[in-house]
Design a protein around this nucleic acid. Structure first.
Length: 337
DNA sequence: CAGGTTGCACAAGGAACGTA
DNA sequence: TACGTTCCTTGTGCAACCTG
């Protein structure tokens, strides 16, 4: 392994000088700087990250805390897009990333505590917002820099990057009411997440204003439960004109159930969902969605946490990313309305 | 001589390993 | 078991050197 001493010897300078060149210290002349840089390149020298962490107590690594590493969560296009934004922004600033890999809260807690204990990370990005979250208590107790992608629950000086989900959901419902819908079914994810609460709240706001009908139901991603629910609906009650889901994957489960129950979209029933991605473009029929720009959420989150780590002044603690409704074939025509 | 540049010595950090 | 040493890098204060 090539160390700073080898470079110093080869360039005929001291290790301090090499270190100063690496850190961009202005005390080094242009001539010496170029000579050291050329030697580092010739030796393909990479600073020892472990030693650097030891010396500076900085790892140049951002920890990413996911609500779960289950396949449903980690392969969710929303999460993939958010991560893509985080990766590119971290790379731009010379930071790498590590992510939690556990499915259970207790496992995630242990992973986070280990990352803090071993100085593996300089700060964290939390990919969800949840009330009374024990993970947040750990971050606070260790005074770790962190930002949250999700809603701010308290004015506690923590940066939150979010969309206005109440307003986005309200706009989507209002648009669908304007298109003639008057009987909604709103399918929300279980799990006490703030984003879901806001989307339900926005939907109810628009419903109240228009005097339309809706029913709110909560499902986890269990196809059997969803199937049974719609079977009973068809058998004993009247179908809604449209189903809105709070999440793309939940929407896809419902699409597959509709296919099995021979419910044709958009003629028998219509669908709309949140978190636009290629899955909604490729779906049959293509799905009307709310684009919440997950890559931007990730980019702003990464930039914000790096600013906190580097001690920059924070002006805006609640950063809102815009949303856009994208209409596709799943809500094009309405039969009998 | 003044000012700019570089070197030296040392401390600090956590873990692993060696020695008394 | 307790203590010392080593690994590698960074940051700092001060000394030494070089050039105009």
């Amino acid at each position: 392994m090539v160390t700073i001493k080898d470079i110093a010897q080869a360039a005929n300078v001291s290790a301090s000088t090499v270190s100063r060149v690496i850190r961009g210290n202005p005390r080094i002349s242009t001539h010496t700087r170029e000579k050291v840089k050329a030697t580092m390149k010739a030796f393909n020298y990479q600073p020892n990250q472990a030693a650097r962490t030891l010396a500076t107590k900085q790892s140049n690594t951002i920890g990413i805390i996911q609500k779960s590493a289950s396949i449903e969560d980690s392969q969710n296009p929303f999460v993939i897009d958010v991560l893509s934004g985080i990766f590119s922004e971290c790379k731009n600033h010379g930071y790498s990333t590590i992510s939690t890999t556990n499915n259970e809260t207790i496992g995630i807690e242990l992973e986070v505590q280990e990352m803090i204990h071993y100085h593996s990370v300089d700060g964290f990005i939390v990919l969800y917002s949840k009330k009374d979250d024990p993970i947040i208590d750990i971050l606070k107790a260790h005074a770790m820099p962190y930002v949250i992608i999700g809603k701010s629950l308290t004015n506690d000086g923590i940066i939150h990057i979010d969309n206005d989900n109440v307003s986005a959901s309200q706009s989507l419902t209002r648009l669908l009411i304007d298109k003639g819908h008057n009987k909604f079914l709103f399918v929300a994810e279980t799990g006490d997440y703030e984003v879901v609460k806001d989307r339900v709240a926005g939907h109810l706001k628009a419903i109240e204003q228009a005097g339309s009908l809706t029913e709110i139901v909560y499902f986890d991603k269990n196809r059997q439960h969803i199937r049974s629910f719609f079977q009973e609906l068809i058998k004993y009650r009247t179908l809604p004109t449209i189903v809105i889901t709070t999440d793309t994957l939940l929407n896809h489960l419902i699409l597959s159930v509709f296919y099995e129950l021979k419910l044709h979209i958009p003629t028998d029933i219509q669908t709309a969902t949140f978190n636009d991605s290629y899955l909604n473009v490729f779906a049959s029929p293509p799905q009307t969605t709310v684009n919440i720009y997950p890559k931007s959420l990730g980019e702003v989150a990464a930039e914000s946490v790096i600013n906190v780590i580097q001690g920059h002044d924070i002006v805006d603690f609640n950063k809102l990313i815009q949303t856009t409704i994208i209409e596709r074939d799943s809500t094009t025509t309405i039969q009998g309305v």
